[in-house]
């Protein structure tokens, strides 16, 4: 059964992968070797501030829902040099009615953060 919103919870997908099964994410088969090689099991650094480098946590907000998310603010504050950004974009990572040639706001904000980091 392909994953669709609500059909499987994140945890149940992880359990299936842990059991040695693969899960199908909209046509992409994901199994343990790939998952374990790239998954970050815990986003919050442990111990807090353990990572000394600059870190950008970018909140991508749908138009009209730009209020800062508390969980993302907490995540950013868990890094020694963490910054929480917030940009407005439609859900460009999937096919939506508008054509998204590129996510201009996300690109601009991310580039600005990168360029501001020259010591």
């Amino acid at each position: 059964m392909p994953y669709t919103a609500g059909s499987w919870r994140r945890e149940s997908l992880r359990e299936r992968i842990a059991r040695g099964e693969s899960v199908n994410l909209d046509g992409y088969e994901l199994a343990a070797p790939l998952f374990n090689s790239c998954a970050i099991r815990e986003l919050l650094p442990n111990p807090p501030h353990a990572f000394p480098g600059r870190t950008l946590v970018m909140q991508i907000s749908a138009p009209g829902t730009e209020r800062t998310r508390a969980d993302l603010a907490e995540l950013a504050s868990g890094y020694a040099r963490g910054t929480l950004g917030n940009c407005t974009e439609d859900a460009f990572w999937k096919e939506i009615r508008p054509f998204y040639g590129r996510a201009e706001n996300l690109q601009r904000e991310t580039l600005a953060w990168l360029e501001s980091g020259h010591d």
Binding site: E95, I96, R97, P98, F99, G101
Partner: peptide, 16 residues
């Protein structure tokens, strides 16, 4: 206009 190729697509809506 798509992927790695050159060009830009001017349409605003996917259906176009």
């Amino acid at each position: 206009g798509l992927g790695d190729s050159e060009g830009e697509l001017a349409e605003k809506m996917l259906i176009e």
